[in-house]
Amino acid sequence: MDLVDRLLDGDRRALARAITLTENEDPLAGDLAAAVFPHTGRARTLGVTGPPGVGKSTVVDGLVHLERATGRRVGVVAVDPTSPFSGGAILGDRIRMRRGASDPGVFIRSLATRGHLGGLSWHTGSVVRLLDAAGFDTILIETVGAGQAEVEIMRYAVTTIVILVPGLGDEVQAIKAGILEIADILVVNKADREGADGLVRELEATLELGAGSAASWKPPVLKTVATADRGLDAVLAAAHDHYLYLESSGSLQARLERELNAEVRGLVRDLAGRAALDWARSAGAWDSALSEVLARRTDPRSAAAGLVTRFLGRVQRKSRP
């Protein structure tokens, strides 16, 4: 496949097009994912999340800048919500990611959630793999976080950075508990504002309460002023430490196995389900099962179980010699 070769070769248009095909669930997307998979697993992934208005994009811009200074190539996936009314979206993260705008070592892609509720696009994982295969060393995933939704970012990012700012108020209080659980690094941005030290102390105290064993990772609480590039080097250093910790403790491998395991399991469920549905529809079994349910003669679960049983029987018959 020409597109894959070009992508592996670092062709930016090919990469961009591959991401589009993936997002659009194009029939080619499956082959594409299969072809790039052997070339993935190399990139370091960092998730950046937090409530709206905390300066996520500015932090990402600063981190990109610092990573570039060390020569590493950086990919960014920035996710914004799709309008539930029109299905359209305005993706504005590039506004703040200015320094990488014309740097050939940086690739920024904005994704809309397209109906996915988790704050990420359905295809975030696949897009990250495409960037990985295209040779980006560090991949930053930025997502709107406003509750438990951003928990999902942990699946794609080895290190999750949660950003807060002083003076956000009750809203943050409410989500803090959830946010602290997913954070590998906590950042108090806009730390030149009043209340920054208070927030740092508060976060540290809360972390202290939930601290695990002495050997486990303790999320550091770091202060930044991203608009002035202050404190971001410490964030990157902490991300590096976190990576080394995961590596040396064996968690990195365990985590990878867990995620791939979950992915394959999910796909089995998805593919088997789809195959069963396709068969049921084409065999006419679907309509009759559904009318039984509509007439309340059969409950939904029994109807589904019946369909699956018949589907499996058919599969077994076919596979007999």
């Binding site: 208005g53 994009s57 500015t58 305005i90 504005g92 993260d93 506004i95 703040r96 200015r98 608009t227 002035a228 590039d229």
Partner: peptide, 11 residues
């Protein structure tokens, strides 16, 4: 010395 300001994304 002062840094640069960037606009919030508001539509």
């Amino acid at each position: 010395e002062f840094g640069e300001y960037r606009e919030p994304a508001i539509f």
